Simulated assay, not measured.
Amino acid sequence: MTHLPDRSETTGRCFGYGGLGPRDDDARRWVRDAIALLNRDAHRSADTHLIRLSLPALAGLEIYLKDESTHPTGSLKHRLARSLILYGLCNGHIGPRTTLVEASSGSTAVSEAYFARQLGLDFVAVMPRSTSASKIEAVARYGGRSHLVEHPAQVYDAARQIAAETGGYYLDQFTYAERATDWRSNNNIAESIYSQMAQEPYPVPCWIVMSAGTGGTSATLGRLIRYQGHDTRLCVVDPENSVFYDNYLSDDCALTGEHGSAIEGIGRPRVEPSFLPCVIDHMLKVPDAASVGAMMALSDHLFRRVGASTGTNFYGLCWIAAQMQARGETGAIVSVICDDGNRYGTSYYDAGWLADRGIAPEPYRDQIARFLDSGVWQPLG
């Protein structure tokens, strides 16, 4: 007799309808209304700014930053959170009484809490205890609760367990980020970048530079670059204690690390399912001190604070710009401001916090500042 797999063996069981079957008219109406609510929220929001940096010392190079900190929840993860919840709704996993659960280092959880509140759903964020206090507070302000674990690698199992205990749905950004986002359209950062670049001197960037947390954004960028036939190359920058760079070099998806990344929101101690090295053209690995130093130098230039993951991006962008300049190349480079630096006043912008962790950013801050002012890249070490 042929074995027909149970729904849970293939697409996952239908969650959280509180006794209503997924085909029940009341449940269908609730899901339809929930999707309409999310679409109205998106329609009320303008696109995020594309900032052009004025850098006369980098003659022939145009530098741009896509400012994702201007989303209603203050980070790049706003797009992802909306996509993940739409994915759960349209796949029949989220109903009117479903508890939403996520494993996160902070920003995704903040954005998901925002959307859960709009839908009237309970939300639980499973985060490392090291997550910045402002992110934990933001989850609470949106009506969610935080479950803190000691080590970043513990977030996955804890989130699954809470979802099972509550009869809820584990949103699982690390698995579904690359598939929940429609990389051809609909809330897509890559499409937005190319649309905003259309009237610039170099409409097609030579490089887009991005760090990876889930890997979903780099997957979206790399796929759209190929789908639309652009000559753009994608550089992904990885922080210390992340295994993405090593996976890119070795193709070993079983790699794990002993420590979590000190740069919130990016870098992982395991190779996440959404990380797709095959769509990446080049990777860099940078010290945490370089990420924080570049964060500070860019904040000085913008006259406002950005976060450390933006510093990782910007350090990679400056390295790419230096290589292009040395080869006499011209063109545009685009990267991303991931979130607002005011979230990190008690961490990356606190000298005592940095000293306790052995992070000394000043040499890298000076290196980036000199490069922006003079166009001269002076390697350290």
Rank of each mutant, 00 (worst) to 15 (best):
Cys206Ala: 10
Leu84Met: 03
Arg44Thr: 14
Val31Ser: 15
Glu258Asn: 12
Asn186Asp: 13
His93Ile: 10
Ser54Gly: 04
Arg357Pro: 05
Ser218Ile: 15
Thr346Lys: 13
Ile359Ala: 00
Gly106Ala: 02
Ala332Lys: 04
Glu272Leu: 03
Arg226His: 10
Leu171Pro: 09
Arg28Lys: 15
Ile63Cys: 04
Leu249His: 09
Gly19Val: 05
Ala290His: 09
Gly293Asn: 00
Tyr227Phe: 12
His49Ala: 14
Ile51His: 11
Gln118Leu: 14
Gly16Val: 10
Arg304Ile: 00
Pro152Asp: 04
Asp24Arg: 10
Trp183Ile: 00
Tyr364His: 07
Ser261Val: 00
Asp339Arg: 04
Gln154Ala: 08
Tyr169Asn: 12
Gly345Lys: 04
Gly60Pro: 02
Glu240Gly: 03
Gln228Arg: 11
His301Thr: 11
Tyr87Val: 00
Arg117Thr: 11
Cys253Tyr: 13
Ser132Pro: 10
Gly381Asp: 13
Arg32Leu: 13
Trp183Phe: 05
Pro128Met: 13
Ala322Gly: 05
Asp182Met: 03
Val236His: 12
Gly216Ala: 09
Ile189Met: 10
Ala113Leu: 12
Glu112Leu: 03
Ser250Val: 02
Gly257Val: 01
Ile266Ser: 08
Gly168Arg: 04
Cys278Leu: 08
Ala158Leu: 09
Gln154Gly: 04
Ala254Cys: 08
Arg184Gln: 06
Leu380Met: 12
Asp41Thr: 11
Asp340Ala: 05
Thr166Gly: 04
Ala138Gly: 06
His147Trp: 03
Val209Gly: 12
His301Ala: 07
Arg40Ala: 15
Val126Trp: 06
Thr310Trp: 06
Leu121Gln: 07
Ala140Val: 10
Phe371Val: 03
Ala254Phe: 01
Gln323His: 04
Tyr245Gly: 08
Gly95Phe: 04
Gly16Asp: 08
Leu50Asp: 09
Arg365Glu: 06
Asp350Lys: 02
Ala294Leu: 01
Phe174His: 10
Thr2Pro: 14
Met127Phe: 09
Gly267Met: 03
Asp6Cys: 06
Ala116Gln: 08
Glu165Asp: 09
Asp231Cys: 06
Glu240Asp: 15
Thr232Ala: 05
Arg97Cys: 13
Ala42Glu: 15
Leu276Trp: 13
Ile333Lys: 01
Cys206Thr: 14
Ala140Ser: 11
Leu37His: 12
Leu221Asn: 04
Arg13Asp: 14
Ala42His: 10
Asn187His: 11
Asp246Lys: 07
Glu329His: 07
Ala59Phe: 01
Phe314Asn: 02
Arg79Asn: 02
Gly307Met: 02
Leu100Glu: 11
Ser309Val: 00
Leu84Ala: 05
Arg117Phe: 07
Tyr17Glu: 09
Asp25Ile: 12
Glu68Thr: 07
Pro96Asp: 04
Thr99Val: 15
Leu80Cys: 05
Thr330Met: 01
His147Thr: 09
Val376Pro: 00
Gln228Asn: 14
Gly12Tyr: 05
Asp47Arg: 10
Val292Gly: 00
Val243Glu: 09
Gln173Trp: 02
Ser146Ala: 07
Arg343Trp: 03
Ser374Met: 06
Gly381Pro: 11
His3Glu: 13
Ala138Ile: 05
Pro22Lys: 10
Ile51Asn: 15
